[in-house]
Design a protein around this nucleic acid. Structure first.
Lengths: 189, 189
DNA sequence: AAGCCTTGTGCAACAAGTTGCAAAAAACGT
DNA sequence: ACGTTTTTTGCAACTTGTTGCACAAGGCTT
């Protein structure tokens, strides 16, 4: 329900074409609100029709032709409206945790490898975030940057948490392996 | 793509009817894989048709009549297969973070209240998780319980993170309020 | 200039998740 | 015994997200 607002935000930061937006979603904004180019194009169409954004004039717009969008006043109003309302945090949807629960009933085959794999991924992501913080936010000055930094620090905190938890989990699982209970495979029916 | 596996897991832990499942999703499993009753009923239908689960025999099953399901061997096999594969962590989708970014371009009206509200919600959730840990996991013995506890500890860690981050964010926003930059409302176009 | 790669836009079909409602059975009050 | 509420199941329509592909323009290569 908030992809349009993500796009409005991105476009206010800088008018862009669909593909540019996609790229930027792959970098900064997509870190906490991902979207494919398809979603973006579709949504750009809707936003344009709704009169919230408009395409910057170009010679003769046609299919493979770049098309830049900018936010209209109505769009800014809408974003302001949205941003001053309430958004309930929606519950976690995490396949790895689900998998642990499954492992509890069906055996932990391959669990160790999977935990390790995730650990690597999260370490990498954490490093990337920290790189961005070092590079882009020296001494955060204006409110805008301070807010953006806050968002980045949420990312860092989350990745840090996962790294720690995964390390804990790996230790725990390793500890189970030799000892009691089932030997990796489920006690079969 | 993993709701069916969430259901299989739940049903292996204990055969249930659709509504019971919904209740259990609202408590334990839904903490990291939420689902509405509609999704669950629809999925139960599919799983039954696919021969992974079956309805326990009852007199004459009809509409408002309770129907219990149990997992068939094929279902266990499928869950085992799924649980030994890879699941990539999908990126965060967090409306609050998006909102912060929006606030950076459109002003932080009402931001403080919203942060406070979330803080309350996360504190409450954290307390609930800790209650469960205290109640259900004294000295975790068998591997199954240790895995389930690990999942719970992920929940605790996540909520703890959010609480900390929100406190940090509130301090930061409060610090902006008096000082420089924009006065809560955006510098209007 | 013919062929090919990249950039950019977009359709169409599908899968997953949400919302609103309806309808059968059972429980309950009076 | 009758109407009301609660439990339980489910349909239908909609929104959101994903996947695979197609098509246009322009640059590059030989």
């Amino acid at each position: 329900m908030s992809l349009p607002h993500a796009i409005l935000t991105a476009l206010l930061e800088k008018p862009s074409s669909g593909l540019e937006l996609t790229r930027r979603f792959d970098r900064s904004i997509g870190y906490f609100w991902s979207a494919t180019h398809q979603q973006i194009y579709r949504e750009l169409g809707k936003l344009e029709q709704a009169g919230l954004i408009r395409a910057l004039p170009s010679d003769q717009p046609s299919r493979g032709q770049k098309k830049e969008f900018e936010v209209l006043p109505a769009g800014r109003t809408e974003l302001t409206r949205w941003a001053s309302g309430e958004q309930d945090p929606k519950p976690i949807r995490d396949a790895l945790l689900l998998r642990l629960r499954a492992a509890a009933v069906v055996g932990r085959t391959g669990l160790d490898e999977e935990l390790r794999r995730h650990l690597t991924l999260h370490r990498r992501q954490l490093a990337e975030y920290q790189g961005i913080e070092d590079r882009d936010f020296g001494a955060a000055a204006d409110p805008e940057d301070r807010l953006r930094r806050l968002v980045l620090r949420a990312g860092i905190g989350l990745e840090t948490f996962w790294v720690q938890w995964l390390e804990e989990a790996l230790a725990e699982v390793a500890d189970m392996e030799g000892a009691p209970g089932e030997p990796g495979a489920p006690r079969q029916v």
